[in-house]
Design a protein around this nucleic acid. Structure first.
Lengths: 207, 207
DNA sequence: GTCTATAGGGCGATAGAC
DNA sequence: GTCTATCGCCCTATAGAC
């Protein structure tokens, strides 16, 4: 296949090459559709050789899942940290959405793989990924909580529930996003406006 | 297993029993984790007998996927139709979210299965489901478009993109919704408020 | 560190009895 | 309409040569 050849040519061999090849395939085809033989071919080695680097298929998956969450967590944290301490709430919120969507849609084989396959892997693998997920969720909750303390977010907003809404909406973009129809940053800004302002007209029949 | 026994006892045999058992298993465990042998056991028959009713595993999946979209489409349409013609935009929007979430979270083995496995099935099965999906999407687009014409939705809202945001957020609730912590209708009303009004405080530092 | 070869098992699907 | 039995395939994982 043309795709596999390309991957094989570009991949470094060894541990990293296997992980990169696996993340790319898993993000595109899902957990059940990707076999060790496919991963090996994409990485430029034979299936049996994988077991020199990893004890099992699930070990590979576990490592990819963790790296995927960490990548988006790092990207969001760095973008928020780059803002001045008194940046407007709107800018903070935009930075979060830009970081999450750019990590997911533009630079993230591991993040894409995580979003795509997390719901498909065996329970034991899912559980192994939970600590890293919880850390990212707690980071977002703290950030949103600060905005609420600053009175930028309405007091009647249920923050943990809004965070679930937000992450669900952001991750779902993976299913339809097309980079040729606009950048991830533009999409993030559009989503940010919708979440911040709502869709309701101020002048309409909104009794 | 306790679960399989329960299903087997309750299921009618024959075509419907197979579909019901398969939808339940697929919604809980995903496409790759569910085999024909498991479906047969849950339906109270042997694996080979399935082929009297269906030509292939993918035929079963295809039928479940279509029924899942149709169920949520019907539920939303009925709830909107039950409103008076001049109902406020807020009520129309709430009816959409209530219908979608109740169909997905409370009454929908087929809808749950669709949301859960659509991204996991072979391309040919996914393609077969597209016409029914497109019909539901067009229905929602028309509905939102009417609200916009009535000047209830701001003119700068990109409706096709908002519809993607909305469905993505609603379907993602499947991953964490717990009926013991609140009803689907309450969740729908909460989401509706967030989408309609946004989260931004009117009094804060929102420059 | 990668190879070849294969064990052992589950899968979708089929054939034919009843 | 359901059964039993089985075919052929692909999978994960292992063993041992190089």
């Amino acid at each position: 296949m043309a795709l596999s050849k390309t991957v094989a040519q570009n991949a470094e061999v060894g541990r990293t090459g296997i992980l990169d090849a696996a993340a790319l395939l898993l993000g595109r085809q899902g957990y059940g559709a990707v076999s060790l033989r496919m991963i090996a071919e994409a990485a430029g080695i034979k299936a049996g050789s994988i077991y020199y680097h990893f004890a099992s298929k699930d070990d590979i998956i576990t490592e990819i899942l963790d790296a995927g969450i960490q990548a988006v967590h790092d990207e969001v944290r760095d973008r928020v940290a780059a803002l001045s301490a008194d940046a407007p709430a709107r800018d903070v919120f935009r930075a979060v959405l830009r970081g999450h969507l750019c990590a997911l849609l533009e630079h993230g084989a591991y993040t894409s793989a995580n979003v795509r396959i997390f719901g498909q892997v065996p329970p034991v693998v899912r559980d192994a990924n939970l600590p890293v997920r919880r850390a990212y969720e707690a980071f977002l909750d703290n950030l949103l909580s600060e905005l609420k303390v600053r009175d930028a977010i309405r007091s009647d907003v249920n923050l943990p529930r809004f965070r679930l809404l937000l992450i669900g909406a952001l991750n779902a973009t993976l299913e339809w996003f097309d980079p040729q129809k606009g950048s991830a940053e533009d999409l993030a800004d559009d989503y940010a406006d919708t979440f911040l302002n709502g869709i309701l007209s101020q002048s309409g029949d909104n009794t």
